[in-house]
Design a protein around this nucleic acid. Sequence first.
DNA 1: TCAAGGAACTAGAACGTTCTAGAACTCCGT
DNA 2: ACGGAGTTCTAGAACGTTCTAGTTCCTTGA
Lengths: 341, 341
Amino acid sequence: MPATPAVPNGKRPTLADVASRAGVSTALVSIVMRGAKGAGQATRERVLQAAREIGYRPDARARLLRSHRSHLLGVQFGLQHPFHSDLVEGIYAAAEPAGYQIALSAVAAGRGEQRAVETLLDDRCEALILLGPQAPAARLAELAGQLPVVSVARRLRPSVPGLEVVRTADDEGAGQAVDHLVALGHRDIAHIDGGRAPGAADRRRGYRTAMNRHGLGELIRILPGGLTEEEGAEAARTLSATRPRPTAVLAFNDRCATGVLDLFLRSGVAVPGGISVVGFDDSHLARLAHIDLTTVGQDVARLAGLAVGRAVARLEGAEIPAGEQVITPRLVVRGTSAPPP
Amino acid sequence: MPATPAVPNGKRPTLADVASRAGVSTALVSIVMRGAKGAGQATRERVLQAAREIGYRPDARARLLRSHRSHLLGVQFGLQHPFHSDLVEGIYAAAEPAGYQIALSAVAAGRGEQRAVETLLDDRCEALILLGPQAPAARLAELAGQLPVVSVARRLRPSVPGLEVVRTADDEGAGQAVDHLVALGHRDIAHIDGGRAPGAADRRRGYRTAMNRHGLGELIRILPGGLTEEEGAEAARTLSATRPRPTAVLAFNDRCATGVLDLFLRSGVAVPGGISVVGFDDSHLARLAHIDLTTVGQDVARLAGLAVGRAVARLEGAEIPAGEQVITPRLVVRGTSAPPP
DNA sequence: TCAAGGAACTAGAACGTTCTAGAACTCCGT
DNA sequence: ACGGAGTTCTAGAACGTTCTAGTTCCTTGA
């Protein structure tokens, strides 16, 4: 029975409780609990034993209050965004071995970025990792003046001092998708974009550039889309009524592509027989056997690792050169792309 | 320019900084910042002005350390679970007006429930809200001995003292779905279940009971499924090869149902023309125009509100009667159910 | 005029930890 | 026996708040 409520009085056990039970000073208990050096082997075990017996757990808040460093990274993420979930998962994994804790703050309906960031700041995070932040650049710059800030998946023009950027080369990804389709023989390739979403502008540009590079400038067609299935389906509806209908579509992301797939399926357009569809992100969604989506893969683990790495580097005072890390995406060819009919 | 770094020295401004600038004691500044009574109108404004000028923000951790109450609710959720995201959103919304803060701790690959709960405890949360916890009942009971614990969407047999349960009447929901299908004229109705997932057993039971009630006991057919699109699609594959094929399917949840829909679509089985499909949850997914899924709606806002309510009630020492709150689901009829062919 | 009562304000002790000094003890070589 | 040089341990001051118990100063009513 490892965790009986323990201490007679109802309160949570403290250092002092452990100390008195083990017959040592609180300072020594502190040393033992942290695994710091300065305690003898025998006492160390006696203290640990006492701590175990009364179910002592160090109070993270008191600990942070006293120590100058908090070793806390604040992460702002969008609750409804599967891609963010993947990133958070990677961030947890990267932070642990680096000796940092994560504080999560969600952006949701009725809880804007401003509020999300404020709570992180109040919790004394040492650095901020913002996933796809939509806040104005000026606001981000202001934040970056106060503490290290890493923006993930959002491009920011002038390298504001103190502001790190980790992102995928969205333009290159879109280009890879176009190259792949062209190699298959496609010429009439449309793009359903992501509007004002982070990364959308770059993907648009990458699409345009690649089309031009292949001498297909006249066939460039960009439809307003978005990051949800619904918006993808809506754009696909428009597309399926157009003549001539393009033979391939590059969607803004996987969710959007799923909507596109679904609508085509329903309106009797075969994929990839009648039209090819390519997504972006390589989220869990794309890998599902029955979806089997050709998509531009973002290296989530790498993005997360770099984000944590940059934040930690800044905190540990390493002189780091560039303010931007751009990861090359790689195309994952699956079942939704084939030569044109 | 509201938030210039301020204080000459690099540190974050504190109560004492504000106090010396406004020419009052720290205690008074504390009073003003909390909006407590005991300060004159004029000084109040002078203090606030000073605080604004140096960009002071109270340190949440120091605050919690001192005050006996932390007003913090710890929420454990599954990162990859859209339904949990919805719940978290509702919990944020409910906690704010009740004067409580939320600390999030995610369950993800490489970060189990044990670890998630530990960090919440270390952060001195006053109560725990666990979304669909998978931990053994004994472990939950042990936790409940230490602080108020609310389990959402997981049924627990014996009412462990200190353990609150808030859940949807899963059996009733499954029953409603069957009733609806039977009313449309269906008899051969299959169920793709959720295996060991929280709520799955109840939904299975509800399905069985309703089938028996309608005298369709012999047609009961339960296929092993799961909570993802993939598992749904897999089960649907099996189903579409069976003869006679059922005329309707009740899926474990909306994600599972989406997989089912998708596979039927691909194998040329019309929905609802050839077969009806009903989901469970009424998540965002189900509402998408192109999916338009008939589903059993869980009242997320209500579940979240009750979870927070129970936790708060327990904390404020209200004597609350039952240990379980069961919400009645309600069927949302959309486009994937129709009379059998 | 005076006491009573309240409003405005403050000193200083908490909260549970870590950190800085320094004390006490051991272990050595001389 | 003596002076380092480690070790192991401890007292007590932080950290940034809130809380308790005052103190001071104003009203006000008799």
